[in-house]
Design a protein around this nucleic acid. Structure first.
Length: 602
DNA sequence: AGGATTACTTAGGAATCAACAG
DNA sequence: CTGTTGATTCCTAAGTAATCCT
C-alpha cells in the first residue's frame, strides 16, 4: 500500500469517526437556536431509515396498581338478608359492583347478567352453592363503605393531601418517563389498568364482564437490548422481553374482554408522537392540492357502468362532503352495533325527493363511534340520489348499503390517487380547511381579544359540528346558564342606573359650569363605558355557552385541526396562544409552536 | 385474496384540580 | 377561608389502517 493510499484512508476514516460528533454539534449549536428547522431535519432523518422508530429505549416497565385490600370485618355482604363472609377473590369482585351501585350501568340487564356470570366463575364451590340470584345480593353496606371512604379522602387535611400528592409525584417520576434516543420523554399511560367491570359504550353486549387484574406475567416489555432491562416486581416474571425497534410501544398485554392488545406508549408531547402528528397534517395538506381532481373523478364515477365503482364513488362523496368515518366491518355480537360510511346499512338512510323546499334529500340516522348518533339531512346531487335508490333496491333494512365496497377496497383506491391517502385523511383535511376558512370569514381585526376568541370558538364549533363531536349536556348546564343570566340582568340594571346618573350629571354641568361638575360628567361617562363593555362580554359568554351546550370542541382541536392554523391566527391578530391552547395542548403542539409564522397557510 | 392480528389514533365521560364568589 | 363551578387531566374504549399469515 502506498503511503498516499494510507493517507487517503486515514483521512476518510478520521472524518467518518468525526461524523456523529459533527452531526451532534451541528444540531446542538446550529439547529437549536433556529429551532424552526429542527423538526424538519428530524423528519428528513426519520424518513430514510425504514420502519425503525428508535435506536435506544430504556424504561422501568409499567407501574402496577395496588393489590386488593380486604374489607374491614364490620362491612358485610348479605345474601337473602343474611350476612355472608366472602372469599377474598369473590369479595373483590363484589366491591367492583358495589362501587357502581348508583351508576346507570347496574340497572341494565345485560350488565347485571354479564357481571353475575363472571362473578360466579370466580366463586368457591361453596359460594356458588349459595349465591344463585343477583337480586338476592345486598351490596349496600359495601357501597356505603366506599362512599364514606371517598368523603374521608376529600376531607383530608392539607398536609395529608400534600403527602399523597408527593407520593403520586414520586411514582410519576420513577415510572412516568423513559429514555428514547438519549432524550428523557414522558410516557402517556404508565400504569396498568386496574381490574373492574367492563364499561362499554352504548348497547355493548359485554358490559359488566369482569376485567381481570394485569400481572407482570401478562406483560411484554419492549426496550433496547443494551438498556437496563426493567425489573419485574419481586417474585414475578415478565411474559416476554423483546427488542423491537420498529414499534413505538414500551409494554403491552392482552386484555381479557375483547382479547385485544393494550399498549404503554409515549405521551403526545414526545418527539416521536409530535413528528407523527406533523406528518399527518402534511399528508392532509397534500390532499388539498389534489382534492379537486379526486372530486372530479368520483363525480364522473357516479355514472360508471360498474356497480362497484359507483358505490365507491358515492361512499367517497359522503366521506368527503360529510366527513364520515371510513366504517370498517366489525365482528357481530362482540361490540355495540355502530357503523361508519362503508358499513352503512339500508335502514340508516331515508330518501326524500323533496323535503323542506330542497330536492334529493338524504336523511342519515345511525350510531357512529362510541354510539354517538349521527343525524343529518343533506341535499345531494341528482346522480347520487339515483344511485342510492339503485343500491337500496330489493334490499332488506339490515342489508349493507354498499354491498360491493369495503374500507380495504376504498383505501386501496385512494392509495392510487395519492401516496399516503386513506379515508381518514379526508376528515383531517376537511376539518382543518374548514377552520382556516371560518377564521378568515369570522375574524374582525377591530374586535377585542374576547371578541376574537368568540370568533375562534365559532370556527372551532363549525368543525366540531362537521365531525359530529358531541357531548352530553353538562349536568350543571341549566343552573350555570341561569347564574349567567342573573349576572347579565344585574349588569343591565347597573348600566341603566349609570346612564341616569350621567344624564343628571350633564344637567348639573349645564346649570353650574364648574370644574367639579365637569369632572363628575367625565367620571360617569367612564363608568358607563366600562359597564357597557362588561355587559357585552357577558352576552358574548352567554351566546358561546348556549351554542356549545352539546358540542365538544376538544376532540377536533386535539386531533383534527392543524395547530399551525391556530398559531398563525394568534400571531396575526395578537391573541396570546395560551388563550386557545392550554398547557397540555401547548406541549402536544410544541412542534407547531416552534415552526409557525403568522403567514402560515394550510 | 382475504381474514386475523397488530399498532396506532381518536373519543367521550369521570375524576381531579384550580379559580372564583360569597 | 370554603364550597361551588368550570377547566383540565386521566382513563380506557373504540375506531382506522397496516401488516402478517395462510
Amino acid at each position: 500500500m502506498t503511503p498516499f493510499l494510507v493517507f487517503v484512508l486515514c483521512f476518510f476514516l478520521f472524518f467518518a469517526c468525526l461524523l456523529p460528533v459533527v452531526k451532534f454539534c451541528y444540531s446542538f449549536f446550529l439547529l437549536v437556536p433556529f429551532s424552526r428547522r429542527r423538526w424538519g431535519v428530524l423528519w428528513e432523518e426519520e424518513k430514510t431509515n425504514d420502519g425503525v422508530k428508535w435506536k435506544q429505549l430504556e424504561h422501568k416497565g409499567p407501574y402496577f396498581v395496588p393489590l386488593y385490600e380486604p374489607l374491614p370485618d364490620d362491612v358485610q355482604f348479605y345474601y337473602d338478608g343474611k350476612p355472608l363472609k366472602l372469599s377474598l377473590a369473590t369479595e373483590e369482585i363484589a366491591t367492583f359492583y358495589a362501587k357502581m351501585l348508583d351508576h346507570e350501568y347496574t340497572t341494565k340487564e345485560i350488565f347485571q347478567n354479564n357481571f353475575f356470570n363472571d362473578w360466579r366463575k370466580e366463586m368457591t364451590p361453596q359460594e356458588q352453592e349459595i349465591i344463585k340470584q343477583l337480586d338476592k345480593c345486598d351490596f349496600k353496606e359495601i357501597h356505603k363503605y366506599f362512599v364514606d371512604k371517598n368523603e374521608a379522602r376529600k376531607a383530608l387535611s392539607k398536609e395529608e393531601k400534600q403527602k399523597l400528592k408527593e407520593e403520586a409525584d414520586r411514582i410519576q417520576e420513577e415510572y412516568g418517563y423513559c429514555i428514547l434516543d438519549g432524550h428523557r420523554e414522558k410516557i402517556g399511560n404508565f400504569k396498568t389498568e386496574p381490574p373492574g367491570l367492563f364499561r362499554g359504550r352504548g348497547d355493548h353486549p359485554k358490559m359488566g364482564m369482569l376485567k381481570k387484574r394485569i400481572m407482570p406475567e401478562d406483560v411484554i416489555i419492549n426496550c433496547s437490548k443494551d438498556s437496563k432491562i426493567p425489573e419485574p416486581p419481586v417474585g414475578h416474571k415478565w411474559k416476554e422481553v423483546r427488542f423491537d425497534n420498529t414499534v413505538t410501544w414500551l409494554a403491552s398485554w392482552t386484555e381479557n374482554i375483547q382479547n385485544s392488545l393494550k399498549y404503554i406508549m409515549l405521551n403526545p408531547s414526545s418527539k416521536l408522537k409530535g413528528e407523527k402528528d406533523w406528518q399527518k397534517f402534511e399528508v392532509a395538506r397534500r390532499l388539498k392540492d389534489v382534492v379537486h381532481r379526486i372530486r372530479a373523478q368520483y363525480q364522473a364515477d357516479w355514472k360508471s357502468k360498474e356497480m362497484k365503482k359507483r358505490q365507491r364513488a358515492v361512499a367517497l362523496y359522503f366521506i368527503d362532503k360529510l366527513a364520515l368515518r371510513a366504517g370498517n366491518e366489525k365482528e357481530e355480537g362482540e361490540t355495540a352495533d355502530t357503523v361508519g360510511c362503508c358499513s352503512l346499512r339500508v335502514e340508516h338512510i331515508k330518501l326524500h325527493s323533496k323535503l323542506d323546499g330542497q330536492e334529493h334529500v338524504v336523511e342519515f340516522d345511525f350510531l357512529g363511534k362510541d354510539s354517538i348518533r349521527y343525524y343529518n339531512k343533506v341535499s345531494v346531487e341528482k346522480p347520487v340520489f339515483k344511485n342510492l335508490q339503485l343500491f337500496m333496491k330489493n334490499k332488506d333494512p339490515g342489508d349493507d348499503l354498499f354491498d360491493r365496497l369495503s374500507t380495504v377496497i376504498l383505501n386501496k383506491h385512494l392509495q392510487k390517487l395519492m401516496n399516503g391517502l386513506t379515508a381518514k385523511v379526508f376528515r383531517t383535511y376537511n376539518a382543518s380547511i374548514t377552520l382556516q376558512e371560518q377564521l378568515k370569514a369570522l375574524t374582525n381585526p377591530e374586535d377585542s381579544v374576547a371578541g376574537k376568541l368568540l370568533s375562534y370558538n365559532r370556527a372551532n364549533r363549525a368543525v366540531a359540528i362537521l365531525c359530529n363531536h358531541q357531548r352530553s349536556t353538562p349536568k350543571t348546564f341549566e343552573k350555570s346558564m341561569q347564574n349567567l343570566q342573573t349576572k347579565i340582568d344585574a349588569k343591565k340594571e347597573k348600566l341603566e342606573k349609570a346612564q341616569q346618573e350621567l344624564e343628571e350629571a350633564e344637567d348639573e354641568l349645564k346649570y353650574k359650569k364648574d370644574a367639579k361638575a365637569e369632572a363628575n360628567v367625565q367620571k360617569k361617562k367612564k363608568l358607563l363605558e366600562r359597564l357597557k363593555e362588561q355587559l357585552a362580554k357577558l352576552n358574548v359568554q352567554a351566546t358561546d355557552k348556549e351554542e356549545n351546550k352539546q358540542i365538544a370542541l376538544g376532540t377536533s382541536k386535539l386531533n383534527y385541526l392543524d395547530p399551525r392554523i391556530s398559531i398563525a391566527w394568534c400571531k396575526k391578530f395578537g391573541v396570546p396562544i395560551e388563550k386557545i391552547f392550554n398547557k397540555t395542548q401547548r406541549e402536544k403542539f410544541a412542534w407547531a409552536i416552534d415552526m409557525t409564522d403568522e403567514d402560515f397557510e394550510f
